[in-house]
C-alpha cells in the first residue's frame, strides 16, 4: 500500500550570515507497509523517524527537498497529493493532547474530523459518539477540554480522531513514552485493532518493547537510512541481521544493558561507506568503500555486507 524507496531529504540552511549549506538528513530510506499490518519505525532521535512522518503528511518546511520515490496505493506521492490525502487517506495520531485545540471540547474536535471527511454534522456526531463508546470513554468526555483529560483518556481520544477518518494509513507518532505500562498496552492494542480493520499502521517509536508488543515488522533507522527491516519475532529469536539492531536489543535493561560506544554520525559529516562502520565490531576495509545496498537476507532486509554472519 505504501512503498518508499531511496527517499532522501535535504535541507538548505543558512550558515553564518549569508552563506548557505545543504544538509542531507535522510539518505536512502526504504519502507513498505501493507494493508492490515503494523510496522514499527524505530531508531534513536535524529535517525529520521519524525521527518519521514512529516514527508508523508506533506508538512516539511519550505527549505526541504525530496528525492527518491514514495508511492501510496500504487500512485506516486507528491507533496500536492500528500496535502490532499492528509487527514483523509493518511491520518496522524499525534503524540500528545498538546496537538489538540485547547479551547474546543474534544467531542467537537473529533466530530469535526468526521465532517472534514465528508460526513454531515449529524452523521459525524453519531459516529463520534459511537467511537467514544467503543473506547470506553464516558459520554461526559465529549464536553471536556483537552487539559481535563487524564493520560489514558487523552490517548483514547487521540486514537478516536484517526478512527473517524477513512484513513488507509495511520501514523502514530511516539504514543508511549512516559505512560504507565497499562496505558501503553491499551494504546498498542488500539493500534492493533486499527490494523485488523484493514488499515496500515506506522508506529514511530524508540521503545523496542512497545514496538515488539504490537508490530508485525520492525524497520530500524540509523542516521537517516533504513539499516534493517525484520519481523518482530526475529528479535527474541536472535535472528537479527544488522549489528546496530543487535546492539539495540542488547542494550535493553532486561538484556545486557550495555551501550555501544560512539555517536550516530551527524548529517554534517556523514562518513563515506557504511554509516555505522565507526561503531561496528564487524568492520572491514570493504565497509569504507561504498554504502551497502539493502539486501534480502534470512527473510528480512538489511543494509550490511556482513549480514550473513
Amino acid at each position: 500500500m505504501l512503498s518508499i524507496s531511496n527517499l532522501g531529504i535535504t535541507f538548505t540552511q543558512y550558515d553564518q550570515g549569508l552563506r548557505r549549506k545543504q544538509l542531507t538528513v535522510i539518505t536512502d530510506l526504504d519502507l513498505t507497509i501493507q494493508a492490515g499490518e503494523v510496522v514499527a519505525v524505530m531508531g534513536a532521535s535524529g535517525s529520521g523517524k519524525s521527518l519521514l512522518a512529516h514527508a508523508l503528511l506533506g508538512i516539511l518546511p519550505d527549505n526541504a527537498q525530496l528525492s527518491g520515490t514514495m508511492e501510496f496505493q500504487g500512485e506516486p506521492l507528491t507533496p500536492k497529493r500528500c496535502e490532499a490525502l492528509r487527514g483523509k487517506a493518511i491520518a496522524l495520531i499525534p503524540q500528545s493532547v498538546g496537538y489538540l485545540d485547547p479551547l474546543m471540547t474534544v467531542g467537537r474536535q473529533v466530530q469535526r474530523v468526521g465532517q472534514l471527511n465528508g460526513l454531515s454534522s449529524g452523521a459525524a456526531r453519531t459516529l463520534a459518539n459511537r467511537t467514544f463508546a467503543r473506547y470506553d470513554l464516558p459520554p461526559t468526555t465529549r464536553q471536556r477540554y483537552p487539559f481535563q483529560l487524564s493520560g489514558g483518556m487523552a490517548r483514547r481520544v487521540l486514537v478516536s480522531t484517526a478512527v473517524l477518518t477513512q484513513a488507509q494509513l495511520v501514523i502514530a507518532d511516539e504514543p508511549t513514552p512516559g505512560l504507565h505500562p497499562d496505558v501503553v498496552t491499551e494504546t498498542l492494542n488500539h493500534l492493533r485493532e486499527l490494523a485488523r480493520e484493514g488499515r496500515g499502521v506506522m508506529l514511530i517509536t524508540h521503545d523496542i518493547e512497545a514496538a515488539l508488543q504490537v508490530a508485525d515488522r520492525v524497520a530500524v533507522f540509523y542516521a537517516g537510512t533504513t539499516v534493517e527491516i525484520a519481523a518482530a519475532e526475529d528479535f527474541a529469536r536472535g535472528n537479527l541481521r544488522h549489528p546496530y539492531t543487535q546492539a539495540l536489543w542488547r542494550s535493553l535493561p532486561q538484556n545486557d544493558f550495555v551501550p555501544v560506544p560512539g555517536n550516530q554520525p551527524s548529517p554534517e559529516n556523514l562518513p563515506v561507506g557504511c554509516l555505522y562502520r565507526d561503531r561496528c565490531a564487524w568492520v572491514t576495509s570493504e565497509c569504507e568503500q561504498a554504502r551497502p545496498e539493502l539486501r534480502f537476507v534470512r527473510q528480512g532486509w538489511v543494509r550490511c555486507i556482513h549480514a550473513e554472519r
Binding site: A44, G178, H206, W249, S251, L252, F257, P259
Partner: peptide, 17 residues
C-alpha cells in the same frame, strides 16, 4: 524524572552507565 523515557535503548544504557 523519566530521564531516559524519550531516548532509544542504546542512549539510555549509555546514560545510566
Amino acid at each position: 524524572d523519566e530521564m531516559t523515557a524519550m531516548l532509544d535503548a542504546n542512549t539510555q544504557a549509555l546514560i545510566w552507565k
